Amino acid sequence: MDSVTLRPFRADDAPWLVERHGTLYAEAEGFDDSFAPLVAEILGAFIADHDPTCEQGWIAEEAGHRLGSIFCVRLNETTAKLRLFLLVPEARGKGLGRRLLEACMGFARAAGYRDMQLWTHESHRAACALYVSAGWHLTDSKSVRSFGVDLVEQTWKITL
């Protein structure tokens, strides 16, 4: 993964991110077709309205092929929110997730945020293990029905 670069998200990455989220979550989690439009809405809002001094998205790329993403967005004056953290299956287990997470958290610190939070699902065991190893703490967990399946939603936080 030494040849993988992390570059800023561009608007022309959005269709790929929407498709990858929709397809991968359908395959791995059984999500219905309501998930990809949510990703498109999040990305549309980011493209239209993000403040680059305190919000950023990254794309992991190798030889012109996109491998993943992560975003840092403003939740409020002191708290950043991690969003759209994704790695394609062939890029998992090689340390790239940690690189993306560290880049996102480093940006949040440099932007002056005091803490970060994220929302995920209990079924994302590898991501949750990564969060624990990076110092994040699970603060809330609840059973829900979303995207056509029963899930356990989780909220995680970290003090920067």
Score class of each variant (00 low, 15 high):
L75H: 14
R74W: 00
E19W: 10
E77T: 10
G135H: 11
I59A: 02
H50F: 00
D32R: 01
R109P: 04
H21M: 07
G44R: 11
E41T: 12
M116C: 14
A63H: 13
C54M: 11
G68F: 09
V18I: 15
A111F: 07
G135C: 06
S123E: 12
A80E: 04
L84R: 06
E122R: 14
L130K: 06
L43D: 02
H137Q: 15
A127E: 11
F31M: 02
G44C: 07
D115R: 15
V88Q: 01
I47A: 04
L17I: 14
W136A: 08
A103D: 04
L86D: 00
A40N: 12
A110P: 09
G68P: 04
A111Q: 10
Y113P: 00
M105S: 10
A40W: 10
G93I: 07
C128V: 06
A108G: 09
V73Q: 11
R125N: 07
H121I: 15
F46R: 09
A126G: 03
R125I: 14
D115M: 11
G135K: 05
A110M: 10
A134C: 14
R10Y: 05
M116G: 15
D33T: 13
A127V: 13
F46G: 09
V88G: 01
G135F: 07
R92L: 08
S133L: 08
Y113T: 00
L101R: 03
R20D: 00
K81M: 13
Q117Y: 14
P8W: 00
L87R: 04
S69Y: 11
W119H: 13
C104I: 03
G93R: 03
A14L: 06
V39K: 02
P89M: 04
G44L: 08
T79G: 05
K94W: 06
N76F: 07
W58R: 01
F71D: 01
R114C: 06
N76T: 04
I42Y: 07
N76D: 15
A45N: 13
F85S: 06
V132K: 13
G112N: 10
A40P: 05
A108Q: 08
L6P: 05
W58L: 07
L17P: 02
R7V: 11
R10D: 11
M105F: 02
R125S: 11
G135W: 08
L38W: 07
G97M: 09
P37S: 11
A111T: 10
I70R: 00
E55R: 08
R109I: 07
W119Q: 12
P89I: 05
A108V: 04
A63I: 00
T23M: 09
D115I: 00
G97L: 06
S69F: 08
R7H: 08
T78F: 13
P37E: 12
H65V: 15
L75V: 05
D32W: 01
A126E: 15
S69D: 03
G30L: 02
F85K: 03
T23E: 13
S69I: 07
R99M: 05
L87P: 03
G112P: 13
A14F: 06
L86W: 02
A36Q: 02
A28H: 11
L38K: 12
E41H: 09
L43P: 01
V39H: 02
H65T: 14
A36T: 03
L24Y: 12
Y131N: 04
E27A: 13
S123N: 09
I70T: 09
P89L: 03
V18G: 08
A28Y: 02
Q56D: 00
V39T: 01
G112C: 10
E62Q: 15
I70S: 08
N76H: 15
G97P: 09
A14C: 10
